[in-house]
Lab assay of single mutants.
Amino acid sequence: MSIQHFRVALIPFFAAFCLPVFAHPETLVKVKDAEDQLGARVGYIELDLNSGKILESFRPEERFPMMSTFKVLLCGAVLSRVDAGQEQLGRRIHYSQNDLVKYSPVTEKHLTDGMTVRELCSAAITMSDNTAANLLLTTIGGPKELTAFLHNMGDHVTRLDRWEPELNEAIPNDERDTTMPAAMATTLRKLLTGELLTLASRQQLIDWMEADKVAGPLLRSALPAGWFIADKSGAGERGSRGIIAALGPDGKPSRIVVIYTTGSQATMDERNRQIAEIGASLIKHW
């Protein structure tokens, strides 16, 4: 068994979910400061990975656009189908120029040979490839089937209604394609530690997140040497930005962190900087 497989195998399969305990108010002060700096709502939650206990939260039950963070949930649904014998990671999917949508850096290079389901999930999570996400959504039956998958695992909040790139529209008070920080954190924890997926599929999902190549300016920029992070970022219209992550010291994950913001006029660089500063405070007061 590899070190990575050993790491995931040791994560307990508890489903406990406790009331908020504000253990590190310094980080919450930074979250509130980020709201002021961005002129926007910021949602934040931090869960203990083992117990599910809420360590910190701010606007945990307010809706925020999911943006590309939904791609982790999508690949979780795909892996669930693989575990059930309904899908194969090695199955090759062919597509055409007409299937390509905005921001598809991986799929646009494989119009001739197509891509396997495994490769599409990797592209969707590590590079946030939008066409890969749409092709994967098609394999499970579309956005409503992803919502149904989430409902079946106990998440009655998170919903996907549209395809890429329309799902990033982020209209105020529009519940389409949204989640809440508390719901997303709990669902991510179930996918990474629960019995919904096999150990091999849980390991595959966290491996894809660990290999994320487009979230460098966010939490990763604040991470000390030797820390572990597996994450997925998202960006949308109307100043929307977000990240979901499993992270921790000593090379293994010990907490789930979810950060969303929407409604800002700030630049992407400024949104990234504020999320990175929240991450720096989190690590400082770990």
Rank of each mutant, 00 (worst) to 15 (best):
residue 246 A to G: 06
residue 214 V to I: 07
residue 137 L to V: 08
residue 228 F to E: 04
residue 18 C to G: 04
residue 61 E to G: 14
residue 177 D to A: 01
residue 55 L to I: 10
residue 165 P to H: 05
residue 151 H to L: 09
residue 119 E to K: 04
residue 237 E to W: 09
residue 144 K to S: 14
residue 134 N to S: 03
residue 184 M to A: 05
residue 166 E to V: 12
residue 232 K to A: 00
residue 170 A to C: 12
residue 184 M to L: 07
residue 66 M to L: 15
residue 282 L to P: 00
residue 202 R to L: 04
residue 223 L to R: 05
residue 259 I to V: 08
residue 238 R to V: 12
residue 77 A to P: 01
residue 227 W to G: 01
residue 224 P to V: 03
residue 57 S to D: 10
residue 236 G to C: 02
residue 19 L to H: 14
residue 124 A to G: 06
residue 170 A to L: 10
residue 64 F to M: 05
residue 197 L to P: 03
residue 95 Y to A: 03
residue 175 E to K: 12
residue 87 E to Y: 06
residue 271 R to S: 07
residue 105 P to A: 05
residue 179 T to D: 00
residue 229 I to E: 01
residue 213 K to T: 13
residue 262 T to A: 07
residue 236 G to R: 01
residue 165 P to T: 13
residue 78 V to Y: 02
residue 183 A to V: 12
residue 255 R to V: 05
residue 117 V to S: 01
residue 121 C to G: 04
residue 88 Q to P: 03
residue 66 M to C: 06
residue 1 M to I: 08
residue 214 V to A: 08
residue 196 L to G: 10
residue 194 G to V: 09
residue 168 N to E: 03
residue 135 L to E: 05
residue 60 P to Q: 11
residue 211 A to E: 15
residue 241 R to H: 03
residue 268 M to V: 10
residue 3 I to R: 08
residue 123 A to D: 02
residue 97 Q to K: 15
residue 157 V to I: 07
residue 130 N to D: 02
residue 176 R to H: 09
residue 65 P to V: 03
residue 47 L to G: 02
residue 84 A to V: 14
residue 88 Q to H: 14
residue 137 L to I: 12
residue 80 S to C: 12
residue 205 L to V: 06
residue 176 R to T: 06
residue 222 A to V: 13
residue 225 A to H: 15
residue 66 M to A: 07
residue 241 R to A: 03
residue 251 G to A: 12
residue 129 D to Y: 00
residue 178 T to G: 02
residue 137 L to C: 05
residue 219 L to P: 04
residue 67 M to R: 01
residue 212 D to C: 04
residue 264 S to D: 08
residue 149 F to C: 08
residue 38 L to F: 11
residue 27 T to Q: 06
residue 243 I to G: 00
residue 254 S to T: 15
residue 225 A to V: 14
residue 172 P to K: 10
residue 34 A to T: 12
residue 232 K to V: 00
residue 250 D to Y: 12
residue 184 M to Y: 10
residue 154 G to T: 03
residue 38 L to R: 05
residue 228 F to L: 07
residue 216 G to E: 08
residue 70 F to G: 07
residue 85 G to W: 05
residue 20 P to S: 09
residue 221 S to D: 09
residue 270 E to G: 09
residue 85 G to V: 05
residue 47 L to C: 09
residue 179 T to A: 02
residue 79 L to F: 03
residue 206 I to Y: 15
residue 158 T to S: 10
residue 177 D to N: 03
residue 162 R to C: 09
residue 269 D to E: 13
residue 175 E to S: 14
residue 84 A to S: 11
residue 53 K to S: 10
residue 78 V to S: 02
residue 1 M to R: 00
residue 286 W to C: 07
residue 6 F to L: 10
residue 160 L to G: 03
residue 223 L to G: 03
residue 229 I to M: 08
residue 79 L to E: 01
residue 259 I to L: 12
residue 50 N to G: 15
residue 60 P to L: 09
residue 119 E to A: 14
residue 233 S to F: 00
residue 86 Q to I: 12
residue 168 N to Y: 02
residue 194 G to S: 15
residue 79 L to P: 00
residue 90 G to R: 08
residue 193 T to A: 14
residue 109 K to M: 14
residue 59 R to G: 03
residue 282 L to Q: 05
residue 131 T to L: 05
residue 103 Y to S: 05
residue 237 E to G: 15
residue 244 I to R: 00
residue 261 T to E: 06
residue 212 D to E: 04
residue 236 G to V: 01
residue 210 E to R: 14
residue 134 N to H: 03
residue 270 E to D: 14
residue 251 G to I: 07
residue 182 A to E: 15
residue 225 A to C: 15
residue 164 E to K: 12
residue 38 L to S: 08
residue 252 K to E: 14
residue 218 L to I: 04
residue 128 S to R: 00
residue 215 A to R: 04
residue 240 S to T: 07
residue 145 E to Q: 15
residue 90 G to D: 14
residue 198 T to S: 15
residue 253 P to T: 10
residue 180 M to A: 11
residue 169 E to K: 14
residue 36 D to G: 15
residue 89 L to R: 03
residue 135 L to R: 03
residue 52 G to D: 07
residue 183 A to G: 08
residue 198 T to E: 08
residue 168 N to T: 06
residue 240 S to K: 01
residue 150 L to C: 09
residue 154 G to W: 13
residue 39 G to D: 10
residue 187 T to H: 05
residue 168 N to F: 01
residue 166 E to K: 11
residue 92 R to W: 09
residue 172 P to G: 12
residue 7 R to G: 11
residue 68 S to R: 00
residue 165 P to L: 08
residue 84 A to G: 13
residue 82 V to Y: 07
residue 134 N to D: 03
residue 91 R to A: 04
residue 206 I to M: 14
residue 218 L to N: 03
residue 34 A to V: 14
residue 111 L to H: 09
residue 172 P to R: 12
residue 253 P to N: 09
residue 228 F to G: 05
residue 147 T to A: 08
residue 53 K to M: 12
residue 269 D to V: 14
residue 186 T to E: 15
residue 42 V to L: 11
residue 207 D to G: 13
residue 188 L to T: 12
residue 158 T to I: 02
residue 226 G to T: 10
residue 140 I to H: 03
residue 112 T to N: 13
residue 8 V to I: 15
residue 3 I to N: 13
residue 175 E to Y: 13
residue 181 P to N: 00
residue 222 A to W: 07
residue 16 A to T: 09
residue 88 Q to Y: 15
residue 115 M to C: 06
residue 249 P to W: 04
residue 93 I to K: 03
residue 35 E to V: 04
residue 264 S to M: 05
residue 160 L to F: 10
residue 230 A to S: 05
residue 39 G to V: 14
residue 167 L to V: 12
residue 183 A to R: 10
residue 131 T to N: 02
residue 252 K to S: 14
residue 255 R to S: 03
residue 61 E to A: 14
residue 202 R to Q: 08
residue 238 R to L: 13
residue 57 S to A: 11
residue 223 L to W: 02
residue 240 S to I: 00
residue 101 V to I: 10
residue 120 L to S: 03
residue 76 G to V: 03
residue 79 L to C: 04
residue 238 R to Q: 13
residue 82 V to F: 07
residue 189 R to K: 13
residue 138 T to I: 08
residue 147 T to N: 09
residue 255 R to H: 04
residue 232 K to P: 00
residue 244 I to D: 01
residue 144 K to L: 10
residue 67 M to I: 07
residue 269 D to T: 13
residue 221 S to V: 12
residue 227 W to A: 01
residue 187 T to I: 07
residue 8 V to G: 07
residue 145 E to T: 11
residue 188 L to Y: 08
residue 81 R to E: 07
residue 125 I to T: 06
residue 231 D to G: 03
residue 256 I to N: 00
residue 124 A to S: 08
residue 239 G to A: 04
residue 197 L to H: 04
residue 169 E to Q: 15
residue 188 L to W: 03
residue 38 L to A: 07
residue 203 Q to G: 11
residue 279 G to R: 00
residue 20 P to A: 06
residue 24 H to D: 10
residue 170 A to D: 09
residue 244 I to T: 07
residue 251 G to S: 11
residue 90 G to C: 10
residue 67 M to S: 12
residue 154 G to A: 04
residue 6 F to G: 06
residue 181 P to G: 03
residue 258 V to A: 06
residue 247 L to G: 00
residue 147 T to D: 09
residue 144 K to P: 15
residue 286 W to T: 00
residue 227 W to S: 01
residue 57 S to L: 10
residue 165 P to A: 07
residue 244 I to H: 00
residue 59 R to T: 01
residue 250 D to C: 13
residue 10 L to I: 14
residue 250 D to F: 14
residue 175 E to N: 13
residue 135 L to A: 05
residue 198 T to I: 05
residue 213 K to I: 15
residue 36 D to E: 15
residue 48 D to A: 08
residue 188 L to R: 00
residue 136 L to G: 01
residue 259 I to F: 08
residue 179 T to P: 00
residue 168 N to C: 04
residue 200 A to F: 08
residue 175 E to H: 13
residue 68 S to G: 00
